[in-house]
Design a protein around this nucleic acid. Sequence first.
DNA 1: AAATTTTGTTTAATCGTTTAAATAATTATA
DNA 2: TATAATTATTTAAACGATTAAACAAAATTT
Lengths: 332, 332
Amino acid sequence: MKKVYLKDIAKEANVSTALVSYVLNDRLTDRIKPETASRIKKIAERLNYTPDFLGKALKSQKTKTIGLILADLANPFSAQVARIIENKVSAYDNIVLIGSTDEKNENFKGLVTTFTNRQVDGLILLPTAHSENEIQRIHKTNIPYVLMDRYFPNKPYNFVVNDNHYTTYTAVKQLIKNGRKKIGFITLDIDLFHISERTRGYLDACKEANISTQKMIKKVNGNQLSIEVEQAIEELMYSCPDVDALLFSTNLLTLYGLKYAIKHKLQVPEVIEIMAVDKAEYYDIFPTPITYYKQPLEEMCNKAVQFLMSKIESNNSESIQEVIKGTLVIGK
Amino acid sequence: MKKVYLKDIAKEANVSTALVSYVLNDRLTDRIKPETASRIKKIAERLNYTPDFLGKALKSQKTKTIGLILADLANPFSAQVARIIENKVSAYDNIVLIGSTDEKNENFKGLVTTFTNRQVDGLILLPTAHSENEIQRIHKTNIPYVLMDRYFPNKPYNFVVNDNHYTTYTAVKQLIKNGRKKIGFITLDIDLFHISERTRGYLDACKEANISTQKMIKKVNGNQLSIEVEQAIEELMYSCPDVDALLFSTNLLTLYGLKYAIKHKLQVPEVIEIMAVDKAEYYDIFPTPITYYKQPLEEMCNKAVQFLMSKIESNNSESIQEVIKGTLVIGK
DNA sequence: AAATTTTGTTTAATCGTTTAAATAATTATA
DNA sequence: TATAATTATTTAAACGATTAAACAAAATTT
């Protein structure tokens, strides 16, 4: 059961480790005597040889490893992303290192350092707020990377993201179509472009329909979501008693919104309609159907991984800036 | 911005790389001239040196990496475990490799191979059904490992698990205390000891209270949970129209059970009470409170990681077999 | 002043692999 | 039959770190 190395095979076959390496990597095939080659291959198989990762990686300076940095693995959105990335990446015979930032910039930096020290071949980043310096630094090195979900506007950085303006724009359009006229928007008080895009989408759709947004936007800072969402909703209902729709800009906000609705027996959707950004398994256990915007996660992850892999392989100078639209899934 | 190696520092300080290594690792401190040492340290700091992971790992044969193999990262239970492990492990300056088996034994084996090839220092395993051969193999090698959540009875393997008999036993006790007399049990049709323990706990509690369990257990195989759970509940209600409680043995089963309850407007808890194994954020958006058994995840992960780390460090021959009790959280 | 000890640093091997260059053995060409 | 060309394999350096052993210089003891 001892681990088998090149030199074990070499000894057994009475050849040098170099030759074994050439054979097992199918190099120099036109030079090596076919019988020698097959003899070596047979021995390798019999001894169940697998190349030592560290030796190989040190020599090749490739680790076949992708680093994935996200907000919080325990959040279903992150977990979903992680799982899809895991699948895509393993199809390329690579593996994923995952790290959670808890939205803290210092953790983000720390993880980038840890991962690059470990020589990951590429990085998939869902950056924290105010991490642009770090992104810029990464961009200037030549480690392949791509931002996902979150990004920075008007910058040359690589990204693959959801169309966040479209997200809330279509959600609001649907609410209006459903006859809603006083639409509250509950979002995060966080300095991330993709979140402010969601506000912009909401505002644009309302403006187009001549719907006032005065005092209809509530931003919660996310330290105590349960309480904050409750307060936000109550403030909203106080300043606008006839609010007839609530649009939540993330999955967690929606969760707490629904909890509130249950706790306070809101009449959903008769009096007030609830609409969500992000799919969640549990919408179905809310008594009435929830319409939600489904992010194109599969496609985003696919594009991101494909881009990284091609970059890692060819070391080209290509960049990527993709904004992908998802779909509004109507609660039935 | 180029990466800095020992030799860069050595060149700058006009000494050998060996000396630099000794200084930066604080070895041979009684031999090295203090001025030389501080000169080297200063240069290392100025050049922002961090040791190359691969070089170090190859030499030391330690990767400071733990492999975590679980069922499905996208499942909240798994994600929760992964996140806690990530935290615990990073406190030891290690990182985690995560892999999902999708309950397939071949994937489990593949991941074990991948991870051991990558020289992880230890393994935390939530094994698949029928993986005992593989576990036995791992047990006989001397790679530190520990089973979590799932395990094999009467075997010398290391494990840290929830008390699954207690889990359903206390849940049923509570249901009986609540006046329930016809208690259905919905569980997975999967050959995993911890799941059959949950059945045993259910049976024992019922027997003790002289409650019949005839036709009250439904096992679903998990390929199409949504449909299967629906069928299971309907069969149960058909063969026992006055069933007054449903106990679900996993979080996903509960989710689909709650969906069913909503869809078919079950009177919960007036007519039928629902009880769950595993905590879930979304119980609060079900119209009435859900009582659930909360597994001692923190404690389990803590014990598992601590055991692994001490094993890795000291290479002792200790083993661990811990069965930990969680708590029943009463829905209020 | 020679021998010994202590102090400070370097050399060289090692971890397991890859690969350019060297060498050896065989066959073809002159 | 010597020489060149081809075929088959080995040597040795490299990746970046660690560390036992060797060495050199200075200080101490005889």
